[in-house]
Amino acid sequence: MSKIREHPPDANGEMTSPKEGDLEAFAVFVQLQRGDPHIYAGCVDAADAKMALQFAREHYGQDQPCVNIWVVPKQAIAATEYDKDLIWRYTDQTYRLARGYAKGVREKWEKIRAKNDLDDYEKEDLKEMF
């Protein structure tokens, strides 16, 4: 093992160097295949977007195949609040969903087809009779 790992310089007590603060946090979004949506993966701290991309590709792009990465300053993300901001309404929303129509549409088709069948039958029946 390297000498420094084996015998690191002795260091004790308070730090004399000034506090540094942190770099800017960037949220990282990875795309696993072309055409797929980008998915939030985590954050990196970096000096700017270029460095954030450089870090993100190695940190979040190596544990699964990844074809594209976005980084966004975390501060730039505005979010709603769970308790304050109601997003989904309580009233019946099925009027704006496909499933709100599934049953009605099926029943209407069945009715129409049954009627068509009956008409056909009657036509055939008439043909045979006369």
Binding site: K19, E20, G21, D22, L23, A25, A47, M51, K74
Partner: peptide, 15 residues
């Protein structure tokens, strides 16, 4: 770190 901070040191923790 000091070189890349570029005067950015002391950023408050991200909210």
């Amino acid at each position: 770190r000091s070189a890349i901070m570029n005067g950015r040191a002391g950023l408050p923790p991200a909210a």
